[in-house]
Simulated scan of single mutants.
Amino acid sequence: MAASNRRPAARATKSAIPQLSWREPQPAPVVLVSGPEEVCAERAIAGVREYLRAEDPSLEVSDLRADDYASGTLLALTSPSLFGEPRLVRVQGVEKCSDAFLAEALAYLEHPQEGATVVLRHTGASVRGKKLLDAIRSGAGGGVEVACPAVKRDSDRFDFAAGEFSGARKRIAPAALRTLVSAFADDLTELAAACQQLISDVPGDVTAEIVERYYGGRVETTGFVVADTAIAGRYGEALVALRHALASGVDPVPLVAAVAMKLRAMARVAGSREPSATLAARLGMKDWQVDRARRDLSGWNEGTLSMAIQAAARADAEVKGASRDPVFALERLVTVIATRAPFGG
């Protein structure tokens, strides 16, 4: 089937063109891969290539940069060859595109080449190329868009990792998934690599013990482990975890942020008797996050939780410059949380 005739099914959107998931991309005459999350963008572009190659192994693949562009290159790479092989042209750097590329890409939308698929990568880092993006989104060129928004929140990383395993038809225990996400909370590329390693290396279901065996050393140095042990009242373990984290190069700012995030989750669910699913839907949380926060509340009351949240706010200011000794600020925070008492009290 010619690329110009493909019209993939899509979700409802305000855009005039189909919006596709980066996990299930499909080719079209023009494929706009937008957004800052490079891991997802790479998967989307690779998915388009695999789709086309499965249709025709003779696929010709070419790469060019929109910011270092020689006039006439786009038309030359998309024009039919002597034997009529399908063509895939992957264009990087559209957010920095040259005037020559912008003009030729806009002209190309008016007359896409039969049998050619052009993938345009725009990170959204600038408004450069907006005229081209607007034209594609209006329907010019018969394109589709694959959005790759930034994965920032813990719940987004959890969904990302869960999708890696479900896409591979691989089961992973909820506790194992939480541990894995916590271990790579600051790097989606490493999280994706860890998921793929477990998928390829582990023959059966992925358990918490397996994740601990593979990534236990990394897990021990995360802010979430510091937070978990402190909130559970294990003072000695919390201090050891804190020192390991700092020794391995964990920055104090995200470490405090991890502690504060768990305390806020506890405060949000405290006192509610709603079913987990109902409460999660109302608060915009996941069921497992509600269940975990409720378990964390064991032994806490309104007074001690309020004190801990205030201590986290103070530590946050101190590690961001209000104190000359961020390590002491962290140790004081861990002490207040783990002992559930005022520092020095």
Rank of each mutant, 00 (worst) to 15 (best):
G236V: 12
R169C: 07
R273V: 06
T229D: 00
A192C: 11
E212N: 14
A258V: 09
G223V: 04
L180N: 05
A183V: 14
A265V: 00
T179Q: 15
A173I: 04
V240C: 00
E237Y: 05
E209R: 11
L180M: 08
A247P: 01
V256D: 02
D187I: 07
T179W: 09
L198W: 03
L246Q: 14
A267G: 00
G204K: 12
S276C: 03
A241L: 03
S272Q: 10
T179S: 15
T179A: 15
V259I: 14
I199K: 07
T221Y: 01
A194V: 08
A193V: 07
A175D: 14
A265Q: 12
D251M: 06
A267L: 08
V225Q: 09
I199T: 08
A260F: 05
A245R: 06
G236P: 01
V250M: 13
R218S: 10
L246R: 15
L177P: 11
V181R: 11
A194M: 09
I199Q: 03
A185R: 15
K262M: 12
T207M: 06
I231T: 00
T222V: 04
E237Q: 14
L263A: 03
D201L: 13
S182W: 12
A260Q: 08
E209Q: 11
R213E: 10
K262S: 09
R273N: 14
L263I: 06
M266T: 04
P252R: 06
V181L: 13
D228T: 07
R234N: 05
A267Q: 09
T221S: 10
R264H: 03
T207P: 05
L188N: 10
G236H: 10
A168G: 08
A260R: 08
T221M: 06
S182L: 04
G217N: 14
A175R: 11
Y235S: 12
G204V: 04
A260I: 06
V240D: 06
A270V: 02
R169V: 07
A241G: 03
S248L: 08
G236E: 10
V240K: 09
S200V: 11
R243A: 12
A175W: 03
C195W: 10
I172W: 01
A183G: 15
M266F: 01
G204Q: 12
D186F: 09
E190D: 15
T221P: 00
V219S: 13
G223E: 01
S182K: 13
A176T: 06
D201G: 10
A168H: 10
V219M: 13
S166A: 13
L263Q: 04
A241P: 02
G233M: 00
H244E: 09
D228P: 08
A173T: 13
V226Y: 02
A241R: 09
R213K: 15
Q197L: 08
T222M: 02
I199Y: 07
A258W: 04
R171N: 15
